[in-house]
Every structure is written in structure tokens, then in C-alpha cells.
Simulated scan of single mutants.
Amino acid sequence: MLSGFLIGSQLLEPVSRGETPSLRRFYLRRALRILPSFLVVLGLYLFVPAWTEMPVVTPAWRFLTFTQNFGLRRNGFSHAWSLCVEEHFYLVLPLTVLALRGRLRAPSLIAIAAAVMGGGMLLRGGLWQHHFSALGPGDPGWREFDRLLYYPTYARLDGLTCGVLLAALRVFRPQAWERWTRGARAGAMAIVGLACLGGVLFINEEHYRYLPYVLLAFPLAALGFSALLVSLAGPAASRVCARIPGVKTFAVLSFTIYLTHKAVQHGVRDALAPQGMDAFHVVTVLGGAVAVLLAALALHHGVERPALKWRERLERGLTSRKPQAQPAAP
């Protein structure tokens, strides 16, 4: 959802000014934000066996083409499946914005979003009925659940869709966005968000992997986090969040933490296990957290930050060569 909101905002803001989003600039920014750190960590997984938390079974080309999340079974660096979803989103959304800019109004956009989310529910429900409806609680066939209904991109469109809708609201209806992110309405959205997420937890606890979970958990989670984002987007909540120690640093390191956390935590657990400390021992938990932050800092300063500086220089070059924009037609 957050990715849909941030990336959607980047692409829709030029449209709101009557400009055409630059695909070259967009893909330059995304490539230099993601690929350098990703390729370094992928190299560690492929060429340094001591690094990986599990043996790497997925072929390298699946990582490099971001198709790993289809037909995936857990192995080393399998958590990169969610980055595949991001990359598919980066390919589709810019082209969609270019194709539909100036042709959609709010009711049509809402109808398309509802169709995407409803279609996702029907697809997941159909797959569940075909593959899992006859299985008992302990049946080994449940091992296919994540491969078919958790990792693939088609199971992850709810959050992206809700995020893009919020981006459109913020960009094209700024006054409405201001109203809903302040005061009592923001508080109400927080309650709605927590209620939706509570519903997800209830379904997961009581009916995990059964049809209600497959149909409702993904859209409820998307709506819940969307409502929470609205409640936290106002100036008062933003100021409070900004004062929490470490929040800005954690936000800066979020991608490098995502890439490294599993392997680093696994290394800490292996190192402390001979001392009688299991995975949930307080020393293991705290030591793993510190080690992950240190690894993320190293990757950020050694790879990510230099790549972002290079991106800034390339963007300035693109801007200097950009032709003067023509005023939009009235």
C-alpha cells in the first residue's frame, strides 16, 4: 500500500500539472535506488555459502528477471519475492498512467480499483476452490498454498491499488486530503484502520487458509493500512512520529534492512546456539537486531548512498537536456 501511494504520487503529480511523466527519469530513479544493493546481496547469496540462511535453490536468472515469486518454494533469499511484486508494479503503473491520463474521472478510477480488488478476490477464491477445498487440516497439499496464493503478484494487487487511490486523492483533491488527515476525521480513520487489521488477525487466527481468509484478508489489510496512512499523514501526527528517536534512520535503512535481515539474524542464531541461547533468547533477539542494523548501515553507506548520489548527477543531466515544457491547453 505504501509503495502504491509513494510511486503513484511520483507519477501523478506531473499529470496534475499538465505534464507527461518521464519514463526515462522514473526508471533511472528506480533502477539506481534498488539494483545496486540488491545485486550486492544477491551476489553474497550466490557466491558466499556462509552468508545464506538456507541453501539457494532458485536459479539466478529468476532473481535477475524478478520472476522468483511465481512457483516459489522457500529457500535462500526467498524473501526477495516481494521485490518482484514491486518491479512488476513499476513496469505496469507508468504505462497505465500514460495511457489513461486525461481520460479518467474519479468515478471511473474508483470503479477500476474496485474491479481490480474484486477480480483478485474471485481469482484467489477460484484457485482455492480448485486446489484446496477438499483438503483436510493436516493434508500435505497445503504446502502449495503459499506458492499459489501468497507469493504471486496477482495475490498482491489490493494494497497497491489502495495506495494508488490515496495518491490520486492527495494529488487531484488536495482539499479533501487535508480534511481527512486532520482532526476528528483522522482519528476516525485510525479506528477504521485498526478495526480492519483486527479483522485480519481474527480471520487468520480462526480460519487460516480457509476461504474467508483467502477472500477477505488481503483487501482488509489493504484498507486497514490505507486508513492508518490517512490518519498519520496530517501535520500533527507527522510531527509526533518525527520526534520518535531512530525513526528517520530506520526509514533511510528500510531497504537495506529488508535485504540483509534474514541472513544476518540466522548468523547470529548460529553463533549463539552453542552457548545455549535459542532464537527467542533476549541476547539472541537484541544481538540480531544490532547486527542487522550494522549490516544495513554498511550496505547503505557502501553501496546505496553512492548509487543515490550518482542518480542525482544523472538526473541533473536529464533535466538540463529537457526541452522547455509547453503550457497546458485550457
Rank of each mutant, 00 (worst) to 15 (best):
R103W: 05
G119A: 13
Q129T: 06
A106Q: 09
S108L: 14
G102V: 02
L127D: 02
L109I: 13
M117E: 06
H130F: 03
R103D: 08
L109H: 02
L109M: 15
M117G: 04
L109Y: 02
G120V: 02
R103I: 06
G120N: 06
R124S: 08
H130G: 02
L104A: 04
R105Y: 06
G102I: 01
R101N: 05
R124P: 02
W128K: 00
H131D: 03
A111K: 08
H131G: 01
H130T: 08
G125P: 00
G119F: 05
A115K: 12
L123E: 10
G126I: 09
H130S: 07
A113P: 04
M121A: 14
P107L: 07
A114K: 05
L122C: 14
G126C: 05
A115N: 13
M121I: 14
M117S: 03
H130D: 08
R105L: 09
R124D: 05
G120W: 00
A114W: 06
R101C: 05
G119D: 08
I110P: 01
I110G: 02
R124H: 04
I112A: 13
G126D: 08
P107W: 06
G119K: 07
G120L: 04
R103M: 05
G120A: 09
L123D: 04
L104N: 03
I110T: 12
A113S: 15
A106G: 04
G118Q: 13
R103H: 12
W128R: 00
L127P: 00
A115F: 13
L109G: 05
M117N: 06
G125I: 02
I112K: 01
V116R: 07
A114Q: 05
W128A: 00
L127A: 10
L122W: 10
L109V: 15
I112N: 01
H131I: 01
S108I: 07
L109T: 07
A111T: 08
A106S: 11
L123F: 12
G126T: 11
G102W: 04
L104W: 02
G118Y: 11
S108A: 15
R105K: 10
A113D: 11
A111C: 09
A115Q: 15
I112P: 04
H131P: 00
M121F: 03
S108Y: 09
L109R: 12
G119N: 11
I112M: 13
M117D: 01
A114S: 10
V116D: 11
L123M: 14
I112C: 07
G118K: 13
G125R: 00
Q129F: 07
G119R: 09
L104Q: 08
S108H: 14
Q129Y: 08
P107S: 10
L123T: 11
G125W: 01
H130A: 13
M121D: 06
M117P: 01
